[in-house]
């Protein structure tokens, strides 16, 4: 596969390691009333879609960015690549 890195352009997927569902960015609030359940779901529950999936890839053999790659798990077509940091900011994870 070829991943179109937002900063570095098209790169072979062999330069990356795969982490998993991009939902891992959305780490729950530890002080919430429902923290125990939230963290359980966060740690263990993953969707396994045949189709569009947003997932984290780490550019280990490159600039060490985490990317959020939107990939069709059936065709491997990649429709979007973002810096995970930008995604995290959009989700309100700035301090």
């Amino acid at each position: 596969m070829i991943i179109n890195h937002p900063l570095l352009g098209p790169r072979d997927s062999a330069e990356f390691t795969y982490l998993g569902d991009a939902k891992m960015i959305e780490r729950p609030d530890w002080e919430s009333e429902t923290a125990a359940q939230d963290f359980y779901e966060y740690a263990y529950l993953r969707d396994n879609p045949a189709g569009i999936h947003r997932e984290l890839w780490f550019h280990e053999g490159g600039d060490r960015s985490y990317l959020v790659v939107t990939r069709d798990t059936v065709t491997h077509e990649i429709s979007n690549v973002e810096l995970a940091r930008d995604v995290a900011r959009k989700l309100g994870r700035s301090k």
Partner: peptide
Amino acid sequence: AAAVYQHLEFVRQCLYPDL
């Protein structure tokens, strides 16, 4: 060593992007 480094980058970039 490699796995911990990767984990720390995940925490830094994905969980606390503006530390």
